[in-house]
Design a protein around this nucleic acid. Structure first.
Lengths: 104, 104
DNA sequence: GCGGAATATACGTGTCAAGGTATATAAGAA
DNA sequence: TTCTTATATACCTTGACACGTATATTCCGC
């Protein structure tokens, strides 16, 4: 079984790569320099991210330029949705409770 | 956000526990039965979830009743926020582009 | 008190992934 | 072609951690 969405994001290095890619596409070497990781480490993390669809890449001569893709991150948002609904209901219930207390 | 939030959710068993707790509080044994996991496994996962603040527990005789807590899950939502903003901007840009094409 | 139920923990085992070094591949440049 | 740059992959070691079995703890009813 391959790593699932959350397992992939469990690695801080990979999250930092994604965070960096939010500001725009980047090559392997630039990521390696900016994030202070060895080049093989960056390449391996990018492979995982790309296989999972978190990023895509295009070729520029010898360079590979990586770019953020949203679909997979949206899966996290989808998983979160029922929880979000639940806690917003809790919040509403709390507000109604406070309103009732105030009216007394 | 604390680094281990995603690592904790990386385990499918733990996510299934949280998913179950969305429908209401539950004892260790009931979780063990419903999720088809051994009792020690459930206890250990609950310990991790509780230490991290994903769940809380109260005592009912020999039973421990576990309940979902939202604060920690909200941290995921917070991490997602800048990405959400980014992809909604992308969506807006796409819509404007389509509008312009339609107007021609 | 004793026995049993509910839960927690200790221990041993196996898997799996991350990190580093060295090397392979591929694409210019000279 | 040969050299250099940019990236990918192979190999190895190490450390986490998930699982199961067995055992400890805790609380209840009798």
């Amino acid at each position: 079984m391959p790593q699932d969405t959350f397992a992939i994001l469990a690695e801080p290095s990979r999250r930092s790569i994604l965070d960096r890619l939010r500001t725009g596409e980047a090559s392997v070497n630039s990521l390696s320099a900016q994030l202070q990781m060895t080049q093989p480490s960056v390449s391996k993390h990018l492979k995982v991210l790309k296989d999972a669809g978190f990023v895509s890449s295009r070729t520029d001569a010898q360079r590979r330029i990586y770019q953020l893709e949203f679909d997979r991150i949206k899966a996290i948002d989808a998983w979160l949705e029922p929880y979000r609904e639940l806690w917003s209901r809790h919040l509403d219930a709390l507000e109604r409770h406070l309103d009732r207390k105030r009216d007394h």
